[in-house]
Design a protein around this nucleic acid. Sequence first.
RNA 1: GCCGGGAUAGCUCAACGGUAGAGCAAUCGCUUCGUAAGCGAUAGGUUGUGGGUUCGAAUCCCAUUCCCGGCUCCA
Length: 599
Amino acid sequence: MTATAKSAPDVSSQEYLDALRHSCAHVMAQAVQEIFPGTKITIGPAIENGFYYDFDGPHHFTEEDLAKIEKRMRQIAEGNHPFSGKEQSYEESKAYWSGRGEKYKLELLDGIKERGEKITHYTHSTFTDLCRGGHLDSTKGIRHFKLLSVAGAYWRGDEKNPMLQRIYGTAWGTKDALDGHLKMLSEAKARDHRKLGPALDLFSIQELAGPGLIFWHPKGGLMRMIMENWLRAEALSRGYQMVYTPHIANIDLWNTSGHRSFYKDNMFTEIEVEKADYQLKPMNCPFHILIYQSKLRSYRELPMRLAELGTVYRYERSGVLHGLLRVRGFTQDDAHIFCTRENIESEVAGCIDFALAVFAAFGFEKYQMEVSTWDPAKSADYSGEAADWEMAQAALERVLHEKKLPYKLIKGEAAFYGPKIDVKLIDAIGRAWQLSTIQFDFNLPQKFSLEYISHDGSRQRPLMVHRALYGSIERFFGILVEHYAGHFPLWLAPVQVKILTLTDEQNAPAQALEAKLKAASLRPVLDLRGEKIGAKIRDAQLEKVPYMVILGPKDVAAGVISVRLSDGRQFQGLRDDDFIAKLVKECSDKLTKPDWGNA
RNA sequence: GCCGGGAUAGCUCAACGGUAGAGCAAUCGCUUCGUAAGCGAUAGGUUGUGGGUUCGAAUCCCAUUCCCGGCUCCA
């Protein structure tokens, strides 16, 4: 390197952002210890979009405290203190942290020693942390940040450990980046399905009925029906067979499946019925297996794809419930594919194609695939044969390769019963949501001793694939609400057209138009109230209705209609038949909007 | 489940130890109007629930339910 000044860092690179955020965490810890002496520090890493630091102390941080801490952080940052690192011996480090009574740091220190790692301390200003490094050159670079929230977090993420207080912050290389992120956060808040859902009269959760249980109102119910019908039609055309199974079953079934032992924590307690115990179903799998098992199967019947919109009930701890995204009763678009080893690649490919069709239909352009495989070193912890695992994992990866779909390989993350592909959707404002899942199951076929008769007359064990594409209809719907911020594509919109009249004179023509729209299988609603047109438009706009037809004396006299789109564009003098034809086409195209020309 | 915060009319909020109030929505009436709020009237509340302190509690205390931010877990 020459004597010239160091080139400016790329403030948008991940490396820079990690260093910045990590540096923020240190500065925050200094500020907290200055303002609240005696607070013990634990760990404070950089995370996606920001940083946090976990503290232990008697004072409970409030919103006002965050403002104070943030102010002090800015002062420290402006002091332009360099970060410097120094390797220390275990004894030196131990003496330092003992002297300060930092018991968490001492615990971390012992861990570092056990793993035989280097012990380094990083210092800026008056603050020193036990840290492996990765900071900015100086605190001067810390400018575009904001403290966001305080939350509880267990020491080392273990609920048996003490609860610490975590302060979250976000930090960026430029003001624009920070503003952009804060805007995304407020946009996310504005789209929150828990707010929009009830506001648009789509669904509710009722305290009297219990938490985590969803009431689908008429509009949400209609949308759900459309989603379900679409999925059923797709499934049938892709060779699935639709089944229906009970919501409850004798406990013996759950003992056989093994759920009573490995899934007990998530199951509601059993219900006694005539001296036998019954169990509300947390999963559909055993039921589909019973259908498979109801007679002797031939290889000629495979692959057998049994699908159901199966409602399951899972006991979720009260603190984890979240709107439609985490509930106690939900409906999975569940399917179980029973197949031979020869089938697996084409079946996995079929599932992937179906999943991509779902995303395309509902307007999700981005997604991330993750393949979770086993840890062969712990093969005893898994069900099934090593050969089957290897074959299934290879098939999952091969299919994704062939379809040129990028994926992340997560080794050792498979469930004990089989490897899987999870798909995360990326929504309109860049958030990822876990949704579709395609999982092999080497456990249940064994538990239920599933068989088919092979072409050579021998009895063989089929392979089984679980697959859910929406994942849960509730969750998918919640994500849809947020993705579109309530402005649903026409084919899903519960009210597609609102017919607004200027005066009572237009009531009859408005009703005639309503009938015509209904005859074309569209969903119109009349607004004949004695309100001014501006008020009717405002109401329709707030309901996020895609199209408004405005009927006034001039329109009726000319035999035309005026159309207003929810984006504000207006078109006068349209023929109703043309309007209807465009809407019908938009519904069948699903996501392609018609060309309305310029307003 | 755990830590912290919260709950007042359908919604958004006010009253912060001394008679619970506003706007919007709802209902009724008037208005018949050209692209985001016409006017008036009426009705609506054991302040989430249960206890306690007090002459007096929406307000202070305890318990509980539900919600929110996270942790752990997950479709």
